[in-house]
Nucleic acid binder design. Sequence first.
DNA 1: AAAAGCTTTTAGATCGATCTAAATGGATGG
DNA 2: CCATCCATTTAGATCGATCTAAAAGCTTTT
Lengths: 344, 344
Amino acid sequence: MPFEDKKKSRVTLLDVAARANVSRATASLVIRKSPLVGADTRARVEEAMRELGYVYNMGAARLRAERSHTVGVVVPNLTNPFFAELLSGIESVIDAAGMVVILANSGDLAERQDMVMQRMREHGVDGVIICPAAATEPEFLGRMAEWGLPLVQALRHISDDIDYAGVNYAAGMREAVGHLASLGHRRIAFAVHGPVHSAYLERIEGFRDAMFSRGFDPDLIIRVSDQTAQIPGSAHLLFENPDKPTAVVCFNDVIALGLSAGLHDLGLKVGENFSLIGFDDVAEAEVIRPRLTSVSTAPVTIGENAARMLLDRLTDPLLPPRRVVKETQLHIRQSCGPIAGPAL
Amino acid sequence: MPFEDKKKSRVTLLDVAARANVSRATASLVIRKSPLVGADTRARVEEAMRELGYVYNMGAARLRAERSHTVGVVVPNLTNPFFAELLSGIESVIDAAGMVVILANSGDLAERQDMVMQRMREHGVDGVIICPAAATEPEFLGRMAEWGLPLVQALRHISDDIDYAGVNYAAGMREAVGHLASLGHRRIAFAVHGPVHSAYLERIEGFRDAMFSRGFDPDLIIRVSDQTAQIPGSAHLLFENPDKPTAVVCFNDVIALGLSAGLHDLGLKVGENFSLIGFDDVAEAEVIRPRLTSVSTAPVTIGENAARMLLDRLTDPLLPPRRVVKETQLHIRQSCGPIAGPAL
DNA sequence: AAAAGCTTTTAGATCGATCTAAATGGATGG
DNA sequence: CCATCCATTTAGATCGATCTAAAAGCTTTT
């Protein structure tokens, strides 16, 4: 429908301006919705743009204006649905602000993370939302500050001098332990895996804190496989300690699902003679039997928070560093029951 | 360490060139690893870049060179781990090729998809990998062709004239039905949900084809909830048909997991007096009890295939349209057993 | 009628790279 | 010793927008 001129490689602002009988500068103002331009002129230019099938050239605009309408997002791992949800939250807010997301995967490796950030910089992103790789060294942030690149940390944090959008993991863990304690459990294990980072440490801290303050043994921490398929096989670890636990708090729902199966394999009835509580509240929690009691962390919301923080910082770079820490919520289902006879 | 000049806003190629005593053009050649430049000159320029802390400006390069080193990826939904894995595969290949991914979410809405594509175009992506929204109208592709934007369809396809990286869904379904048939099942249901698109139709076709060719009733198709949490509650639908099935093939593993729980709730023993087979082979298949027999579709691999196809097309835009269709693989676990007494 | 104050429009420089086409310098050949 | 060739290097135009500072039209004030 829009009559195309196959000869000319591309319709530019100059073409639009010519057709609308205005200068290129005016046409530019129209695109940017400047209030300086008169109503009739604006209409004429917009008409011309439509007729010519004009496409805005961000690249050219960015070069001059030093703004790319582009945000970098760096996550450790896309395969993990948790990060995918985070990303989803980020994308929706960034998109609504008329910007786009440039995605990168650090593989949770500091070295790759460096490369990826370099690439982001070359692409001229306006800012970056990053879930820092586990072994990120502190100098990393110094370098970022030197670059003057607006940064928001999501889910994990390395520095308090930089915006952070996360979850109150420690409180969530306290909630989990509290729930089990209220059911009469005293010997509670904590099942963990994965790399060590702030979110890891906060969960450990919350667990130990909650256990310690009740006079329970806070050291029943077991480490299960990082491979999802092998977690069920790690269930026996729970009972290698002489002080056999009657319940287990899980670092995340992947572990909880795995241990739920593993405990079942060992002949235990989860929710009856052994209790299990997850963390993250993934969709599957509702779909396994027994239904998994879990502490929700709502990664989509964290993503939205992180994106909003970055947008705020872009409009006002001098904002003091902020922390937006979301509270968790306990979803009670079937996997926890009152303390029964000794396990095994 | 690199001595920064806070006054000057940015180190450009001209600065580098000056310091290395060469022209800007030569410095440009060095960055692009042109073989035209002498070894000693190259070394000098690289040294200068390091000393000045030079950062390549993609935006400027793109303006002149008409190449952005940027690939758009459009998916219907990030929250679905399936698409997240697809994305992961795409990202790894694109990254290895020195390009970056610009991400967008169509929400499976044709209208949003249009907006998103427009935005991709404004950002000057070199090409786009798209999993087309369910209700994409055929004109969409005409418009894309008019734009001359290299395109690859992933997982779903609308046109045979455009590259497509996908899965042989129909064959996978035949495999699933074949497995159940070999265990003696004849009355097999098919549980579906979600929007209608090519991947949906191919699965239906594969199921019906496999049933029909064996002389089984191909019309036992039931539609379950789109909400993960409500799928278990849909299990009773299986038995509303007078011709009660003894097994069910699921459209995907989300449904399989849900029905597995729902059947359990109805007092059936999956794998003993009712058989169930999933599709996609997600990580959880190994972690629920009974372990889920499932047909794997390996979305990461599809993503890699799609990305490679796009890269090929970028180097040679005149390539004829190609189809890369991956075969599925059946993973036999515990959720299917030989036919037993009548269900319920 | 000139000055002042608005609003609206504009010419021309500019962002930082790449491209083209030509220049440079040294080696080789007649 | 000049012509030819090859490998390097380069000046200057160019991509398509935005920015600055000033001009052009208006109306209102003096």
